[in-house]
Design a protein around this nucleic acid. Sequence first.
DNA 1: GGCCTTATTTTGATTAGTCAAAATAAATCT
DNA 2: AGATTTATTTTGACTAATCAAAATAAGGCC
Lengths: 220, 220
Amino acid sequence: MATIAVENYLKHVLLLSAGSDDLVSMGALASAVAVVPGTATTMVKALADEGLVEHQPRHGVRLTPEGRRLALNVLRKHRLVETFLVNVLKMDWAKVHAEAEQLEHAISDEVLDRLDALLGHPQTDPHGDPIPSRQGKLSSQVYATLATCVTDRGVRIVRITEQSPEFLQFAEQNGLQPGTTVRVTDRNVPAGLVTLKKSGGRALALSIVAAGKILVEPAR
Amino acid sequence: MATIAVENYLKHVLLLSAGSDDLVSMGALASAVAVVPGTATTMVKALADEGLVEHQPRHGVRLTPEGRRLALNVLRKHRLVETFLVNVLKMDWAKVHAEAEQLEHAISDEVLDRLDALLGHPQTDPHGDPIPSRQGKLSSQVYATLATCVTDRGVRIVRITEQSPEFLQFAEQNGLQPGTTVRVTDRNVPAGLVTLKKSGGRALALSIVAAGKILVEPAR
DNA sequence: GGCCTTATTTTGATTAGTCAAAATAAATCT
DNA sequence: AGATTTATTTTGACTAATCAAAATAAGGCC
């Protein structure tokens, strides 16, 4: 099993490569994991021996498919834990990153799956950063949903992902169509309830599951 | 901050001393933390230098007040995490110990407090093992409550801790008096609801908060 | 093209935690 | 009491991860 240090290096290579498969510079990696450059070199060589990264000496480092798989799993843990801390434990957003940094290395895949289900399989964390899927897919353009977006801020409905007529009708009857701007006033995950207000004024409650089907973006 | 290894040694000294302040033998400690005896000796000497344990060479080891404080905090984390995993994530009881073993070292005091509140400040984990209080008190004789006991097993009501007439009347009207045997059929922590059945047959739902005030013991 | 700056790699040490196996002390058993 | 068994400690060595500082390579600049 990968150690905590290994998981951290892999995660940061993934984050620094930002979708592309460019090489990540050693300097950038070293400062991301907060070690001196020499330490990063040593570790990267070890990771290369394990087949987790490809190291081009003097130029940089890139994940192998296996390394990417591990890195995505860590990132998934990080973002789901953050979502849990904010949505269920109501923690201050500013604090959760540091917490998740620890927990991401201690949580098993089984706990992860159950947490994912409890949260209603969110696609993004409350920041709007995409959560990698269990299968290791990471969308670069994903939207937050009413179940995951920031609260007390205007957000614009972009799309309704559930296509069943019943659901669309329900959405329409409550004025939840793409383009509408709403504001989530309360989110009670244990109770499975999201409360929101339309700019027009009316308050409306809907289930987390339903809220998760409504994609939103920040309303400028 | 104490490392994971340090936390583990302290926790096991606490568990092995079983309430008394007898010395814990090195052999017992070594096998509890799964290291060879020599390793335990080395570590214990280091802990003694830190003032966390008192080491009587060739005889054994005992926690100092400071070591005990740390050990109780780890144990509190362990048992609250187990309770969370079973009661909220519905995990198999058999698996949660190993999970908690990891998580107990990754969880912060703040997350711990919020978890504690979410679970309704349980006094015991689902095993009936007492959860140390935030202040580091560990009762040796504690009962589980309807909010924490095993499910689908007969348990006998021992005591109602809430003394307000309203609550006692409510309990009586529903046949929940000391001596009665009931069985918890479902516990939905997110919804804050406990469902139980009396041996006599009727199903009854009550809140987690109320359930937490009713002490039970295994019905033989 | 040679020089200078900057990034990267090497080298040598350090710390925490561990094991294997030898040495030592304590306890037990005739 | 003396011998033997058992528990504990010591010693020497190893691994993972790190830092400080010297050595090296690349890239840009006049």
